[in-house]
Amino acid sequence: MKEKIRENQTKDILLELLAVSLLATGGIFVKFSQLGPINTGAYRVLFSLPLLFPLAYPQLKKLTLKDSGLLLAAGVFLAGDIALWNVSFSYTTVANANLLTNLTPFTVIPLSYLFFKERMPRFFIVGAIITIVGVVALLGGKINPSFENYFGDGLALAASFFYAGFLLICYHLRDRFSSSVIMFISGFGSVASLFFIGGATEGIQHPEIWADFWPLIGLAVLLQVFGHNLLAYCQGKVNVNLSSIICLAQPAIASIYSLFIFSEKLSFSELVGIVIIIIGVYLVKAQYTAKKEIVNNKEQQLLKND
C-alpha cells in the first residue's frame, strides 16, 4: 500500500504556515487579557462554540452517546492544558511556553505503545535524548534565571501532558469526525472544567468593556476556530515531514511576536536549546506521524476491499 500522495502546493504550505502563525498568537492574547488566565481560557472556548456549530452540525447526528462521552472527557484534558498553559505566561516567556507544550510526542508515543500496541519510531530514544539536551540548554541558559521562570516552564511542560491526554482520547474518533466536531463537543467539557477551576482559584470573572472582550474574541477566532481547523485541513494537503517542520516553527514565530510586542529577549544558550529541541521533536514526530498515516491508509484500503 502506497503512502497517500500530497502535492505540497505552495498555497497549502503558506496556509499551514498561516495556521501555525495564528496558533502562536495564543500567549499574546492571554497576556493582554484583563481577566485571569483560567477565566480567559474558559471564555476562549465558550466564544468559539457558536462559531464551530455550523461547521460541526452536519456530522453531529453521527455521534453516539459513547462518542460524546469520550469527547467531553477529552475536553477535560484540554481544559487542563489550557489552564496550565495560560498560567505559565505569567511566569515564563511566550517562546518557552509554546516550545515546552510542543513536547507532546514524548507522552503520546509511549502511551500509544502501552494502550494501542503501536510500535515506537526507530529513532524515538535518540530523539528523546536530543530533546533532553535541548531542554537542559534552554533552562540553563536564561538571561535572568529565577524560581518564577522555572515554575512557568514547569507549568508549560505539565500542560503538554494534559494535551497528550486530549490527543489520545481523540485518536480513533479523528478518523470518523472532523476537527470541528471534536473541538465543538469537547468544548463543552472544557468550558465546564475551566469555569470550575477558575471559580475555585480566581473567582468567576465577566468581561464588561471592549478591553476585556477583544483578547477573548482573538483567542476564540484565531486559535480555537481558524488556527486548529486550518491546520487540520492543511495536514491533509502537505507531506507529513514538511508539515512537521512547519508546525515546529510555532515557538520561533511566538518568540518573534513576544520580542516585538513585549521585548522578551532570549539568550544565545536559549536559542541553541530551542534549535536542539526542535530537531529532537522533529526526528520523533515526523517518523511517528508518517507511520501512523501509512497504517491508516492500509486500514482504509482493506475496508474498501471488503
Rank of each mutant, 00 (worst) to 15 (best):
I38L: 00
L266R: 02
P58F: 03
N149Y: 11
F151T: 06
I185K: 01
G80E: 01
V295F: 10
H172R: 15
I246T: 01
F115D: 07
N39E: 10
K285M: 15
E148K: 12
S48Q: 03
Q205P: 03
K117T: 09
L168A: 09
L100R: 00
F195W: 03
P145H: 03
F151S: 06
F177L: 04
G27Y: 06
T289F: 12
R6Q: 14
N144V: 14
F53E: 10
Q59G: 01
S146E: 08
K304H: 13
A254I: 03
K11P: 00
T289E: 14
S180Q: 09
V133N: 02
L157Y: 10
L138K: 08
G75M: 05
C234G: 11
V238N: 08
S193A: 15
F106C: 11
L65G: 05
Q300D: 15
F123Y: 15
P105K: 00
T10S: 12
I204C: 05
R119A: 15
L46H: 00
G127P: 11
G26N: 13
K31F: 05
L242T: 12
I185T: 13
S267F: 01
G26D: 05
V76S: 09
S193Q: 02
V135D: 09
I125G: 07
I143C: 10
V275S: 00
Y91C: 06
N96I: 06
A74M: 07
A19S: 12
K31Y: 04
A97Y: 05
S180W: 03
I130K: 05
D212C: 12
V108I: 15
V284R: 08
P58R: 03
K265H: 12
A192C: 01
L15C: 11
T101L: 10
L259P: 06
E293R: 13
F226N: 05
N39Y: 00
S48T: 09
A286I: 10
K292E: 08
R44L: 09
R122L: 14
A290K: 11
R122Q: 14
I130N: 04
G80C: 10
G199V: 01
S255V: 08
E118P: 10
G152I: 07
D81F: 08
Q250N: 05
